[in-house]
Simulated scan of single mutants.
Amino acid sequence: MSKAHTVLVIGGGAAGNAVTVLLRRAGLTVDLVEAEDDWNATAGSGITLQGNALRVLRELGVWDRVKASGFGFGSVGITAPDGTVLHVARDLRTGGDDLPATVGMQRPQLQRILMDAVRAGGARVRLGTTAEILGQDADGVSIRFSDGSEGRYDLVIAADGLGSSARAAIGVADKPEPTGMAIWRVAAPRPTGVVRTDLAYGGPAYIAGYCPTSDTTLYAYVVEANRDRASIPPETYAEEMRRLASAYGGFWPEITAHIIDPAKVNYTWFDRLLVEGSWHRGRVVLIGDAAHCCPPTLAQGAALSLEDAWVLAQLLTSGEAWDDALFRAYYERRMARVRPVVEASVQIGQWQLDGVRDADVPGLMGRTMTMLRELP
């Protein structure tokens, strides 16, 4: 590269942290700003990381910590609502044969691992800080921070999530749209016999499932049709999730007994977003949930965001000019990968909403996951 580039990353989630680590490793000057004071260090219950996500985490140099902190497994069970196991399928190793098919882990633990990697890489981090795009030209972007200071960068990477203010600020009109489903999530102790994800279809919810996240923990979730959030007071979250989960057998009674604290239960709608045309405007480029999101029916949200960071960092450090051609190449490379995952994730949920009983869910999942074995 002809000169030392400066980069501002807006957002300290998985995508923002990953791209920061990779760019710092290449010697670029990187500032990261995160709106939350605690850097989201305690947010969320659990996360399912499939092989293509693990492949990027290995590239970041954090795989050993992820492996030690999470729970690896290689299959998924399909059960009846009463807990009877109907089928066990082997998961495809989308990250290659030298990585587990799947690792479940506590989401805050993954965030702490990525935070530590960002700090170790030497990026300047500013928490409790937002960034406003004042304007840009062919050479860079002018920024005003919420503390009143200003800065100028050769590139701004908007990794500020589903409700991205940077996306709106650069004139991208796409917004997330609800798919019609919602999910209840909670972290709980892991019953001894839970050694993989099990999914129950039917009963009072569309899906009731759980994923081990360590030797002692799991996260459990129940998927239903979305409801008006205003009609569900937060203090009733535990009661509502417990009511749905109590209809399921097998390990569920043991799990349900721990759904007590409403503050530890998370309720969110499923959304769909796929920004079309391009993921950049000038010297501002979108990654992660700011550019795309999908229901977790394929457990690919974080994986796709991590892949975005990996691909963008490869292009930015390739020695090529940071111009429209480079950012267009990023968009085209990622869209070919992201679109089928978003569409498949939405389709699986829609089949359930429509009550389609003969849908080829295994076939669609198999085709999509086979595609993800290829390098992004």
Rank of each mutant, 00 (worst) to 15 (best):
H5P: 01
V85D: 05
G44K: 11
G203S: 04
G95V: 05
I10N: 02
Q136K: 04
H280G: 04
G277Q: 01
T48I: 05
H292K: 10
T20P: 07
E150F: 03
A238G: 12
T297P: 02
V103K: 04
S318L: 07
S345Q: 06
M105F: 08
G83A: 12
R65W: 01
A158E: 05
R107E: 10
A303P: 08
E332D: 15
R152W: 05
R229I: 10
T197H: 03
G74D: 15
G301I: 11
E332C: 12
D37G: 13
V30D: 03
S231P: 11
I207S: 01
L286R: 03
A18K: 05
L218H: 02
V275A: 06
R328T: 15
A303L: 09
G96H: 11
G83Q: 07
S146Y: 08
A321H: 09
L315N: 02
A220S: 13
A166Q: 02
G61V: 03
H280I: 00
A4N: 13
R167A: 08
E240S: 13
A117I: 11
L326E: 08
K3N: 14
V195F: 00
P108T: 05
A329D: 13
N226A: 07
G355L: 01
F145K: 09
I348F: 07
G83W: 05
T297C: 10
P262V: 03
R373M: 14
D358F: 08
S165R: 15
G51K: 03
A138R: 13
Q300R: 12
G277K: 06
H292Q: 14
G44S: 11
S345V: 07
L306G: 06
A187S: 15
Q347S: 15
G51N: 02
A68K: 13
P376I: 00
D31S: 11
D271Y: 15
G319D: 12
D308Q: 10
A159H: 05
R337E: 12
A290K: 02
L32E: 04
V76Q: 09
L134H: 01
D323W: 05
R333P: 08
A169T: 03
S149Q: 11
S165I: 00
D147R: 08
L244F: 11
